[in-house]
Amino acid sequence: MVANVISNVATGARSKSIAAIGPYLKSFSIVIVFVVISAFFAVANEYFMTWLNWVNLLRQSSINGVLAIGVTFVILTRGIDLSVGSVMALAGMIAASLVTSTNQHFVLWAVLAGLGTGALLGLLNGVIVTTFNVPPFVATLGMLSMARGLTLIFSDGRPVPNLSESFRWIGGGSVAGVPVPVLILFLVFATGWVVLSYTTFGRYVYAVGGNDKAAKTSGISTRTVIASTYVISGLLAGLAGLVLTSRTTAALPQAGIGYELDAIAAVVIGGTSLAGGRGSLVGTLFGALIIGTINNGMDLMGVSSYYQQLLKGAIIVVAVMLDQFRK
């Protein structure tokens, strides 16, 4: 009650203006961070602001962006998905095995197999979390290891090279000068954004994350909603796996190790609360772009990758600190 009244009074004065511009302001702040970082690199390196580099930067961010969008859904329900890096490796491996020179199928089957693998593993995560009440951290940590194990078993620890030309188009091709991975990222973002903002499912995702008991009392099938977010995360990990495999022109059994951390970092930098119920895909998209920009900019400046790791970690922590401060 004490805190209630204080916030009541405090909001009384500002709530009108905050209510009107609050959401925009919040998405704005991450855009400002993005612009500041970009401006810094633009000054530091003349090549940074070229069209070619931006195309490159966007392409580098696309895989992490797609993963992060999937993980955003899960985190909004107060969950976590640690398995996306391994899931993308397995999905990429299975898809690649269908388009090698010795075992060549129509590329669509490979794509469907990759997406299907991701969705299936996501569903498994979802069922383990909702039906068997295993904490998401543990369930997906197990899946991280299991999916990696399956990838190694399936490939016998060897890369799968010599992928067909049409499959390689997914990661290497472009349409009207825009790389296919970038197109994929924006398509996924647009779809995800519409789902979260305009559909009842999107509303339920926020409600379940905000208060699952209240959501249940309101007649929402919370289990279905939660499980669905893991399916979405798995499906997008599968998609990211296709792009990665296609770009590297071979499926590597150790692909995607540690990618889950970059994806979660993008979500967190983007302002989505690990406590669930708050956040947006706009934030996640810019979170991924910020990570991509830092990597790209420091590469251009010739900063050693050791220092890049250090700085990236610091930026994640500072971003969340700023977020706490703003609250």
């Binding site: 409600a207 905000g210 208060n211 008991k213 209240a214 959501a215 249940k216 009392t217 119920g277």
Partner: peptide, 9 residues
């Protein structure tokens, strides 16, 4: 607070 409302929404 516990079962009635999504407080942050």
């Amino acid at each position: 607070k516990d079962t009635g409302l999504v407080l942050c929404a």
